[in-house]
């Protein structure tokens, strides 16, 4: 899979997520992950969408997203030029004789223990998706019994921001005839 990360600023209005999700299903685009949250501007939400470039024409995704009226801006973040992170909560079964190894693995990935029971623990890990996959593979040896991931979020490196030169960031003052 060639993952492409799109950062999408949308108006924070009802139905926007449905329009975006509907576009993906209608045009047979495959989403690998989708995360949504607020931005510093309460009128604007930010979606991070990862699509598989091998099965989905990324240029078409980009252009079709831009056609949605409530979509303000679409930026493709190149992997090298962006910080990409994903948070995972992982419930792992713990055998007493392997507990030390498990904690060593967690420490190596800067994952922290956020819950503990007699025979399980929950790890919280924040990492790039690739590193997270490595951690999960390693934890398989212990027995992962539940997993939840947020989906990728990403931000461009350097001083540029996504709202630089954003067309119509201020509400357009066009008047009807």
């Amino acid at each position: 899979m060639t993952a492409h990360t799109l950062s999408v600023l949308v108006e924070n209005k009802p139905g926007v997520l449905a329009h975006v999700a509907g576009l993906f299903s209608r045009r047979a685009f495959n989403i690998s992950s989708l995360s949504v949250g607020p931005t510093a501007d309460p009128r604007v939400s930010r979606m991070t969408i990862v699509v598989d470039g091998a099965s989905t024409p990324v240029d078409q995704v980009h252009k079709q997203l831009e056609k949605l009226i409530r979509v303000l801006k679409v930026v493709e973040l190149e992997q090298d030029a962006a910080v990409e992170r994903e948070l995972a909560l992982i419930k792992v079964t713990v055998r007493p004789d392997l507990r030390a190894d498990l904690l060593d693995v967690a420490a190596a990935f800067s994952a922290t223990v956020v819950d503990l029971s007699a025979d399980t623990l929950v790890l919280e890990a924040v990492a790039s998706p690739g590193k997270l996959d490595t951690l999960l593979a390693r934890l398989e040896q212990h027995g992962t019994c539940e997993l939840v991931r947020t989906g990728l979020i990403a931000i461009g490196r350097g001083s540029e921001t996504i709202t630089d030169d954003m067309p119509g960031h201020q509400p357009m003052a066009a008047v009807a005839g």
Partner: peptide, 10 residues
Amino acid sequence: PPVLDLPGYR
């Protein structure tokens, strides 16, 4: 007339 508020319409 109303003010059109379509910041994402290109």
